[in-house]
Amino acid sequence: MQKPLFMLTAKWIASTTLLAALFGPNAAFAAPSEQSENTATLIVRSSADATFESLHDMPRLNLDWVLRAERGKMTEFAPELTDLYVRVAGPAMENRTFRMTRSGRLWEENTGEQIVLPWKASARLLQEGEVLRERHYGRLLRWQEADRIFYRNCVFTVQDLETGLSFQVQRRAGRDHADVQPLTREDTKVMNLIYGGQWSWKRRAIVVRLGEERVAASMNGKPHGGDGIPDNDFSGHFCIHFLESTTHKSTVPDVAHQMMVYKAAGQSRAFTSTAAPERLAESLVHAMNERDPEWVRLLTEGVELIKQDEVLRKMGALAAVRSAAPRRQDAVDAVDALVIPLTWSVELYPSEGERRNATWNMRYIRTSFFSPWQSIDILFEPENVRAR
């Protein structure tokens, strides 16, 4: 039904009044006659390497502020990044893509350069980004609720958050999470393509869709267990996890699956903000084992960039990594501490070569007793080839 004209007019007046109040007469907008050949596009994607992205063109954004903005020095530490990107194209900008920091600056990964924007421009970009993020991600939904919505034998759609590829599945079973199967041979082909042509237990962030529902979830890609759909070229089922769901063998949610659920909701930082240092260290090992550079960047946000790059290089050379539980180097009560050093033993499984043992040391800090913990240093002790 068409909305009354007075309702649309009131909404337009309210929105333009808000923009005027927020940005004022000197806002970073340009009248159509003042627009240059340069263009700006706001982007949301779950990682720097994701090919699936949500876009919002900003034709009335004057790009002069990018050209005139104060250039920041190359930082020695990893900036607090968001999932927002700004792509600027045109003769003056040479098709450059910047990533936004939490403070509203633009950061170029290749050069390490930061651009300090006028606060009105950064506020506009961050505000528009929030709207775009709601469209890009799924919502967090506890397993008890998801269990009712995605009931047994129902058919729903799975969308991979990194590639954007979608396929249909049918839930066949599962008490603590959903056991599902690709619906047809074509669905199996798409799922196999998402996993690079090789089935694995690797967790992936996904959004599952049924009707108007868009829910954050995590899947693995390994056919196992019972089979219920003939002729779909998928021997067995695979698992989909939701918020607080568990595996069949544990009453505790799988950390790696929960990380991907939060990622699929666009709330990775909410996962880390309430975590103790031991959980953060454990999550770093899971991130490396899942070969997820975006999680690695978030979990090493406070360390020097050179050390963060070392972690990413190690991840790239590993087929898998396992660790013992991290332990505190000192008898420190986390309730009363502001700095906690951790050490733990890890087993490294290189893509090529012998399995190795190593010891990792990290330091975590918080600015107050109510602030989240953040890593500030990581030290890798020499590795030893493990005796057979």
Rank of each mutant, 00 (worst) to 15 (best):
E53I: 01
I365T: 09
L299K: 08
E34L: 14
L42A: 02
F234I: 05
R172I: 13
A10R: 10
P91S: 07
N153Y: 14
G164L: 11
T17C: 11
P230H: 14
W360I: 08
R322P: 00
E94P: 01
F271N: 02
G196S: 13
D64V: 04
P350E: 04
L42M: 05
A270M: 06
V252T: 08
V261R: 02
D233I: 01
A92Y: 02
S345F: 09
G129P: 03
E347V: 06
D231M: 06
I229Y: 02
R185S: 10
L18S: 13
R124P: 00
K202L: 04
H241Q: 09
K3E: 15
L379F: 12
L67G: 13
P32C: 12
Q258K: 07
S283E: 06
T39P: 01
T82C: 05
A14C: 03
L312M: 11
G90K: 01
Q308G: 08
E113P: 00
P277I: 02
P253L: 00
V155H: 05
A217M: 02
S122F: 10
L338G: 08
R363K: 13
G221T: 04
Y262S: 03
L19E: 13
K189P: 02
R175V: 09
S345I: 04
P277Y: 03
Y349C: 06
P118N: 11
V158C: 10
V255F: 02
S122Q: 10
E128S: 14
F150S: 00
P59S: 12
E301F: 00
F238T: 01
K314G: 14
A10S: 10
E244Y: 11
T9R: 13
S122V: 06
E37Q: 12
V339Q: 15
L63H: 00
T9D: 10
S36E: 04
L125Q: 02
T343R: 08
T251K: 13
G24S: 11
E134K: 05
K73D: 10
D231G: 07
V215L: 05
W295C: 02
L305Y: 08
V346M: 06
T188P: 06
S15F: 11
Y151M: 12
I206A: 04
S200M: 06
R297M: 03
L183W: 01
G266T: 12
D187N: 15
S245P: 01
C154Y: 05
G302D: 09
Q2C: 03
R133V: 08
D176P: 00
T367Y: 05
A264K: 00
V321P: 02
D176V: 04
R142I: 13
Y364H: 07
A387K: 06
G236M: 11
R135I: 06
S368I: 04
R71K: 12
R291N: 13
R99Q: 14
E145P: 01
T97R: 07
V155Y: 04
Q127K: 12
S235F: 14
P118T: 09
E53K: 14
S46Q: 14
L193Q: 12
N361P: 01
Y151I: 11
K314L: 15
P25D: 07
A14F: 07
E212P: 06
R386L: 14
K73N: 10
